[in-house]
């Protein structure tokens, strides 16, 4: 029944506050608290157990002088750039192809997107089998008469990144396609009518009129793909286990191995803090851009 006093601020819709406690705890304890904890402990010499003995930037110095970390960063950069470009290019091409009022659109889209429903572990294992030098692609092509043909990315340090790309794009390009297709469908029909009346060829309309109109959708895709690239871990574990040698190591795997395998927590914390810094470098400009756009509207 009715309250007898003035509604106190703290108790105003207390049920909502109570119901939102899990969200508040997640935001404060996990996302902020745990991240800060890791950043702080990255300046300590923790090994098997976390210890608050500060050693300044020693962990970072050691991190950047470790060949495995250098290779990891280099791999991530190469994989990241190629994967971003190829995913966007293939995604856009497929979206345009699907947008041509084709028959069986649902069928094609189902085929293109199904790998996205799979675990990276499944993807990695399948591509490991397809790229197996003794039974897979290389074996088949040799069997067709090209006995000198060599394509063994899983055992070639220079090509192993291609194996990761083939599998990664197989799994992820469908998502980009679907998002870009939604973006294409969101464009005003009248733009197409106007272009047709003006006699502009379809491909030109796509590149010079539609593409610039889809900037926000592309920005969303870039952020999603980038977030995925930085988290790249499961696929490497299942497909190459970082090999041959350390040729396909990535930062996320470095973090895991140092934290849980080599019992060198400080290194793991420093490496994960570097990953956080990289993400912030992508997210903050994007967030500011979005914020600025909202203000202007």
């Amino acid at each position: 029944m009715a309250r007898s006093g003035p509604p106190l601020r703290l108790f105003q819709n207390w049920q909502a506050k109570l119901a939102a406690t899990p969200m508040i705890l997640t935001a404060l304890v996990v996302f902020i608290g745990c991240s800060l904890w890791t950043v702080v402990y990255s300046f300590t010499n923790s090994r098997l157990l976390p210890r608050l003995e500060f050693v300044g930037l020693a962990q970072y110095e050691r991190l950047w002088s470790t060949p495995r970390w250098q290779v990891s960063i280099e791999n991530l950069a190469v994989y990241g750039v190629l994967s971003l470009i190829l995913t966007l290019a293939i995604g856009f091409l497929l979206a345009v192809l699907l947008d041509q009022k084709i028959r069986f659109e649902d069928g094609f889209r189902t085929i293109i997107l199904f790998p996205y429903a799979l675990s990276f572990i499944v993807t990695g294992v399948v591509w490991q089998w397809i790229l197996n030098p003794d039974f897979g692609l290389q074996h088949i092509v040799r069997g067709m008469g090209f006995s000198g043909f060599t394509f063994d990315p899983l055992n070639d340090p220079n090509l192993v990144i291609l194996a990761l790309l083939a599998a990664g794009i197989w799994q992820g390009a469908g998502l980009t396609t679907v998002i870009l297709l939604a973006g294409l469908r969101g464009i005003d029909e009248d733009v197409w009518k106007a272009a047709r009346v003006d006699g502009i060829p379809t491909w030109k309309t796509y590149i010079f009129i539609v593409l610039p109109m889809m900037k926000p959708v592309f920005a969303t895709c870039v952020v999603l793909i980038s977030a995925g690239i930085i988290k790249l871990y499961d696929l490497v574990v299942a497909l190459t286990r970082g090999g041959p040698g350390i040729a396909s190591e990535v930062p996320a795997k470095y973090v895991y191995d140092y934290m849980f395998g080599n019992q060198n927590l400080g290194q793991g914390f420093a490496a994960s803090t570097m990953m956080l810094a990289a993400v912030l470098a992508i997210i903050i400009p994007f967030a500011l851009f979005q914020l600025g756009r909202k203000r202007r509207v």
Binding site: Q12, N13, T26, L28, F31, T38, V39, A227, A252, I283
Partner: peptide
Amino acid sequence: WRFKGSEVFFTILIFGAFIPYQVMIYP
């Protein structure tokens, strides 16, 4: 049922979706 700060927590939550898990797994 918006309350004071509810949007702030939500913003943190969305930002959190982009933090690499590796940063939070050990704590």
